[in-house]
Amino acid sequence: MQKTMKKYFPIFVGPTLLAFIIAFAIPFIMGLYLSFCKFTTVTDATFVGWNNYLKMVQDKDFVHALLFTIAFTVVSMITINVFSFLIALGLTRGIKGTNLFRTTFFMPNLIGGIVLGYIWQLIINGILLSSGVTITTNPKYGFWGLVVLMNWQLIGYMMIIYIAGIQNISGDLIEAAKIDGATNFQILKKITIPLVMPSFTICLFLTLTNSFKLFDQNLALTAGNPAKQTEMLALNIFNTFYGRVGYEGVGQAKAVIFFVMVAVIALVQLVLTRRKEVEN
């Protein structure tokens, strides 16, 4: 089988590999190299060593964007997971209309980031109207606006994963606990929560990476205003590339660091999930 298959490599792997090299491999390697160069287009690059990385560290907007992104990610992770887990608990009790509720809560997840951003811009500006301000008056409004938007988008998604986790718990376990006289709260604490731990890991990392890499919603809701105070990392990188001539190299250095941070998050997730699998 192996021998006949080998002749078919160009047909089976060729097209995808070619597209992969063009759209990913070459841009990735070029990107790594260019982060050490000064350039405006890719053809006029001159090597400058760690210069771009030094400029990046000194860029106050970048440091602010990093801190803003971390704060936003932590708050979103907590709120989204608490709300979605509570809703999942409520929707696994066999009440009427469960399917309808589930369908509605999940729907915002399908709407694109740009559209979501403008929807919430209108609503938050409408709420702030009575105080005579807009979402870009104070960075706090932008921050909490993004948190609310992210909750609206991701609660339904995480809820579905939690529901699947809760429904996987054997009914016998809960029966047995009830016969032994456990209260509902004890069942939740001693049976439900420990057994949905794998769902918790998945959801925490999904909300973590989604919040950390956020771009479209940020661009549409506030575009970083006022004065770049609500700019997240991805938007800061974009603005460095396309907003300041001569800073393309710095933008690329920021992108490399951004990639390293995302990769570290993914590695931690991999290690954590592997360990859990061994324990079970």
Partner: peptide, 29 residues
């Protein structure tokens, strides 16, 4: 090859955004 594809999965778009746009421009994609 399998591991290269898995690696690509975690790379955020910002990492290749600028260079991909340039490559696409050069080869008329």
């Amino acid at each position: 090859l399998y591991y290269v594809f898995v690696f690509a999965m975690i790379v955020p778009f910002q990492m290749v955004m600028f260079t991909m746009a340039k490559v696409a421009n050069i080869i008329r994609f």
